[in-house]
Nucleic acid binder design. Structure first.
Length: 426
RNA sequence: GGAGGGGUGGCCGAGCGGACGAAGGCGCGGCGCUGGAAACGCCGUGUGCCCGAUUUCCGGGCACCGAGGGUUCGAAUCCCUCCCCCUCCGCCA
């Protein structure tokens, strides 16, 4: 949520910058600006009337205790109350609309974020590693996985429909190994490992920005009014919602493995095959809660921590900075990590690391008390470290051999009882 | 699923129609005591919004005792609805 005072004070500037994410948002800013003016007007009237009512009411009480009933005063009070009622109702309507709209305006991009329309305008920051050269035609990971007997898309569909997969034998073990490997790695860097609920209340999703705007992307358990988390960012970031943290507690680093559940509405044709886009996938997430002045330095470190996973696994990747048009709803600045995928012959997203500044903190009233005794909104950051399914896909494709076998990255072998290679069945 | 208990400030906890934004304690900050500290003593210390003079410091107002509604001149306090938490029993990994 944007600071309404910022819109009030720097209306033109905010409007212009928000428009770089899409023209439709500028209209929301306009409406909010107007509603805020109206709100304050009404609020002034209402509060003045209430002050009057409070004063007269006290006087009435005083008189009554002295045994003097004042019918004129009583009538006056009733009259004020009636005027108040009408104004209060209007104020409430205005406030509700204002609040709802404010929750639907995305975060303001950081000044350093390049202006652009979509992913084609993202800016490559650096590359690491060399894409492998094959003297044969590299196969896509779903073919490799099926031949190795570790991925079973058919039975995934039998159980749950399209975009679900079953992992078998070493496939299942590989997932477990990757999760443990990633969590251990992040633990070394000071992230506290957490295990969190996968079902959360609606207000939790409002806190991180998935609601109210992106309801259709979520799986909902209607009768219990709970949602399946689309990422561990949601429970992790909300852990300290409505708290006032101590300054010395910051920064806070959390990591957690969770499955992630996404309806993927509106992505019907895309990535039908393989592990790239599923309704349920595994992810190890990184979350930071920091002081405002530290958040951008912390973002760079967060990206480095996510990169480290790819480096340890020796998977070639690049880092791109998202442009304004490609930025997620809550993010002020985002770096994506894209891993090399031979069958696509291009880099594909495997991690997204964002600084949300105080956008989420304002929604969830997450603050800390400064040394001067002021309550200051924290900054929140999150990043994948990494998406497990996509990592598995990248390993299969980058480490494949001509005979269809796949070499296990060295760093992962201790987690798989020393296995060095997975061979096709029969 | 059944039966009870409860949600009050950073935390614990009292209040159960007006003088209550709320006792007391803890914590935190300041001052005193001390060679220094602990203990002790004194003082201060909730959040949000609006308005005004003022860019910091300030003054005024309004709201907030889980959420929403009602009764009343007046609600933390009484009534209704909802949410959440806890305890016991049952069931269960």
């Amino acid at each position: 949520m944007l600071d309404i005072k910022l819109i009030r004070k720097h209306y033109e500037k905010v409007r212009k910058r928000i428009a770089t994410r899409g023209e439709e948002y500028a209209k929301l800013v306009d409406r909010v600006y107007e509603l805020d003016r109206r709100k304050r007007e009404l609020q002034k009237e209402v509060e003045n009337l209430r002050a009057l009512l409070n004063r007269k009411s006290k006087e009435y009480g005083r008189l009554k205790r002295e045994g003097k009933e004042d019918e004129t005063l009583k009538g006056e009070l009733a009259k004020i109350k009636e005027t108040l009622k009408g104004l209060e109702e209007e104020l409430k309507r205005v406030e509700e609309e204002l609040n709802d709209l404010l929750l639907r305006i995305p975060n303001l991009p950081h000044p350093s974020v390049p202006v652009g329309e979509d992913e084609n305008d993202n800016v490559e920051v650096r590359r690491w590693g060399e894409p492998p050269k094959f003297d044969f035609e590299p196969k896509p990971h779903w073919e490799l996985g099926e031949r190795l007997g570790i991925l079973d898309f058919e039975r995934g569909a039998k159980l749950s429909g399209s975009r679900f997969v079953v992992k078998r034998g070493l496939g299942a073990r590989l997932v477990r190994a990757l999760i443990n490997f990633m969590l251990d790695l992040h633990g070394e860097r000071g992230y506290v490992e957490m295990y969190v609920p996968h079902l959360v209340k609606p207000e939790i999703l409002v806190g991180t920005g998935q609601l109210p705007k992106f309801e259709e992307d979520l799986f909902k358990c209607e009768r219990d009014n709970l949602y399946l988390i689309p990422t561990a960012e949601v429970p992790l970031t909300n852990l300290h919602r409505e708290e006032i943290l101590k300054e010395e507690d910051l920064p806070i680093y959390y990591t957690a493995y969770t499955p992630c559940y996404r309806r993927e509405a509106g992505s019907y044709g895309r990535d039908i095959k393989g592990l790239i886009r599923l309704h349920q996938f595994d992810k190890v997430e990184l979350v930071k809660i920091t002081k405002p002045e530290d958040s951008y330095e912390e973002l760079e470190k967060l990206v480095a921590d996510a990169e480290r996973v790819l480096q340890e696994l020796e998977l070639p990747y690049r880092v791109v900075e998202l442009c304004t048009g490609d930025l997620g709803f809550s993010a002020a600045k985002t770096y994506d990590l894209e891993v090399w995928m031979p069958s696509y012959n291009r880099y594909r997203e495997i991690s997204s690391c964002s600084n949300c500044e105080d956008f989420q903190a304002r929604r969830m009233k997450l603050r800390y008390k400064s040394k001067e005794g002021k309550n200051i909104l924290c900054h929140t950051l999150n990043g994948s470290g990494l998406a497990v399914g996509r990592t598995l896909a990248a390993i299969l494709e980058n480490y494949q051999q001509e005979d269809g076998s796949v070499v296990i990255p060295k760093a992962l072998r201790p987690y798989l009882g020393g296995i060095e290679v997975i061979k096709p069945q029969k």
